[in-house]
Amino acid sequence: MRGLLSMGLVLAVAGCAQLGIGPKTDAPASMPAPGRIAPAPKPTANSAAAFDTTTAAQRAEAAQKPATGEAKLGVTIASLGDPTDPGFWMRTGLVSVESKGRIENPKTGKSAKVTLIPTGKPAGAGSEVSLPALRLLEVPLTELPELTVYRL
């Protein structure tokens, strides 16, 4: 009787895995999109510097303007996105597929290479920008800057 009960339990757990129920232990590893590679901030983070887990090398790379090959997508009003989502990214309605891009603050000329992530919203609905990208643009985190968006 115990053998049948044990076998039933094993089959039930196996069935849960087939249905996608329970923890994902064998999920395929996927590489994060370029510009989004950075560790998550520590749960104790309590300042912009603590939430920004990008390295000096990543910030230097993101600040470099490409020589050629970009297309202007438009201008958007941006706000701070989720500060716990690491890396350089912008969620925007200006793109329909995730792609490499660059955002620029026309007031200062500062720019950041980012991963452009579609929101499914209209292009004029505004955008969210990662904390590291806003810091690179030297935009106060409580501002709603107008940013120019380019696809690389």
Rank of each mutant, 00 (worst) to 15 (best):
M1S: 15
M1Y: 15
M1T: 15
G3L: 14
L5H: 12
L5K: 12
S6D: 12
S6A: 13
M7F: 14
G8H: 00
G8W: 03
L9M: 15
V10A: 14
L11A: 00
A14W: 09
A14S: 11
G15P: 01
C16M: 09
G20T: 07
G20F: 03
G20H: 05
P23N: 09
K24I: 13
K24C: 13
T25M: 13
D26S: 15
A27N: 13
A27L: 13
P28N: 07
P28V: 07
P28Q: 05
A29T: 13
M31H: 09
M31R: 08
P32Y: 10
P32R: 11
A33H: 11
I37E: 09
A38E: 08
P39M: 13
A40Y: 13
A40R: 11
P41K: 02
P41I: 00
K42F: 08
P43E: 10
A45H: 02
A48E: 01
A48S: 05
A48N: 02
F51V: 07
D52F: 02
D52M: 02
T54Y: 01
T55Q: 03
A57G: 00
Q58Y: 05
R59L: 00
R59K: 06
E61G: 08
E61C: 08
A63N: 02
Q64N: 15
Q64V: 15
K65F: 15
K65Y: 15
A67D: 13
G69H: 05
K72L: 08
K72V: 08
L73Q: 06
G74F: 10
G74I: 11
G74A: 11
V75S: 12
V75K: 12
T76G: 00
A78L: 01
A78Q: 02
L80M: 07
G81L: 01
G81I: 01
G81R: 03
D82K: 06
P83S: 11
P86R: 00
P86V: 01
P86D: 03
G87C: 08
F88K: 00
W89I: 01
R91K: 14
L94S: 04
L94G: 03
V95H: 05
V97C: 09
E98V: 12
E98M: 12
G101F: 04
G101H: 04
R102S: 09
I103C: 07
I103Y: 04
N105I: 06
P106G: 12
K107Y: 12
K107D: 14
T108A: 03
G109A: 00
K110Q: 08
S111A: 09
S111M: 04
A112M: 04
A112Y: 04
K113M: 13
V114K: 06
V114R: 05
T115L: 12
P118T: 10
T119C: 01
T119L: 04
T119S: 06
G120H: 02
G120M: 00
G120W: 04
K121A: 12
P122K: 11
G124H: 14
A125C: 11
G126N: 07
V129M: 03
V129T: 01
V129A: 02
S130Y: 00
S130N: 07
L131Y: 05
P132Q: 05
A133M: 04
R135C: 06
R135F: 02
V139D: 06
P140S: 10
P145H: 02
E146V: 06
E146K: 09
T148F: 05
T148E: 07
T148K: 06
T148V: 11
V149H: 01
V149N: 04
Y150R: 02
R151D: 11
